[in-house]
Simulated assay, not measured.
Amino acid sequence: MSYAFAVTRPVNPPGAEPAITEEQLWKGLQYKARYPSAFVPMITSCKVVSDEGNKLVREVTFGNSPEVVTETVEAHEATIVYFEMNTGIRVTNMVSYGPADEILLTYGFANGIPGVDAGSPKPSAKELNARVGKGVEGSIAVVRQMVKEGKL
């Protein structure tokens, strides 16, 4: 059985400095598509095979695995980035807005969650929220650092 799950985090929670704009977040997600290891430590290598701007194909390896995973990445400015893996897993990064116009970032997984064996029981929503949420928070932290350094 394959699992699906999604987690949302605020991009600019109280006290976070500097505030990240929608444009900066989107540029950060574009950077993440091409240089994912800065955002996803489990990705140990990435080779972009083709890049057509809003659509690219990349080959990545995870951890110590010798297996190369091919991903087709499709961006729909400035809201959604789809990562379609040749393993059947689909990852979605989505920029959205809350009721007070706060910027939110959601990571969604369909047809499986990396790091969760399809044959094992699905972890609880609380456990997945914590685990996947750390990934979203980590990506926001990388974008914030890039903003601080004037890279975005």
Rank of each mutant, 00 (worst) to 15 (best):
Y35E: 12
R58H: 04
S2Y: 08
I89L: 04
V116H: 05
K47F: 02
G63K: 03
E71Q: 15
A4W: 08
G108E: 06
P36F: 02
E149K: 10
P66T: 08
S120Y: 09
Q24A: 08
G63T: 01
E71K: 09
T87E: 03
V48E: 04
I113N: 04
A130T: 13
L29E: 01
L152C: 14
V73I: 15
P41D: 06
K148H: 11
I80S: 09
V81N: 05
S96C: 05
E84K: 15
Y82G: 07
V143G: 02
V147P: 03
S50C: 09
A4R: 10
M42F: 10
E127R: 11
T70I: 13
S50Q: 10
G150M: 08
A100G: 10
A19E: 11
E71W: 08
E137Q: 11
F5T: 02
I113T: 05
S139M: 12
I113D: 06
V69Q: 13
I43E: 08
A38I: 05
K151N: 08
P13L: 00
A38S: 11
E74A: 15
R144W: 04
M1A: 12
V81K: 02
A6W: 00
P10I: 01
I20D: 02
T79N: 15
T70P: 09
E127M: 12
E52C: 12
V11N: 00
D117W: 03
G88D: 06
M85A: 15
